[in-house]
């Protein structure tokens, strides 16, 4: 049957990626459910605050007081964390050690994302910058040393991490001004 839309090179690239998605599939599934998880977490926070849980109210207020750049950085960290944890759970080619390292890295990234979004405590930018930089260097070394093949999901994740590093500086330079997008 003839396609309704001709997507050209992009289509061929994505079709090839979809076939290639083999070992990246868990990461892509995790990314699909990430918005659902974020929305569920915010709903739970709001629900907790409305029923009078002090901790939930405090976290919600901290979230509402955080600058948009910090929330964007938190989103970037959460994306990276999801990919790392999903790949770790799916048992990567590198074996158990690599799985443990990826799981630890992902958990730490997720913790920093939460720190950035709902804790009014400074210091998260330094931790995030250190962890993201370490991850980027490790990936470059692994690819350069032939331990890992370049794939679409890996490269895209690293691009998100580079962009997140950029947002960290923006978050540091611009204090909270208005409500932002996700108020």
């Amino acid at each position: 049957m003839a396609p309704l839309l001709h997507t050209g090179h992009l289509g061929k690239f994505l079709q090839a990626s979809a076939i290639h998605a083999g070992h990246s599939e868990p990461a892509l599934v995790a990314l699909t459910f990430l918005p659902v998880a974020i929305m569920a977490a915010l709903t739970a926070l709001e629900a907790g605050a409305r029923v009078g849980l002090t901790a939930a109210a405090r976290l919600r207020d901290a979230y509402l007081g955080s600058p948009p750049a910090s929330r964007l950085a938190a989103l970037g960290l959460a994306i990276s964390a999801s990919v790392h944890v999903a790949i770790a759970v799916a048992e990567p080619h590198g074996g158990t050690l690599l799985a443990v390292l990826l799981a630890l890295d992902g958990t730490a990234l997720l913790a920093i994302a939460c720190w950035a979004a709902v804790l009014a405590v400074p210091g998260w930018r330094t931790a995030a910058a250190a962890l993201l930089s370490a991850g980027l260097v490790a990936y470059a070394v692994a690819v350069g040393g032939g331990l890992e093949e370049l794939d679409v999901v890996g490269v895209a994740t690293k691009l998100v991490e580079v962009a997140t590093l950029g947002t960290l500086f923006a978050a540091a330079r611009r204090p909270a001004t208005d409500g932002g997008l996700f108020r």
Binding site: G11, F13, Q15
Partner: peptide, 9 residues
């Protein structure tokens, strides 16, 4: 993105 992988019926 769906149109890129499934442009037809």
């Amino acid at each position: 993105i769906g149109f890129a992988v499934a442009p037809g019926l």
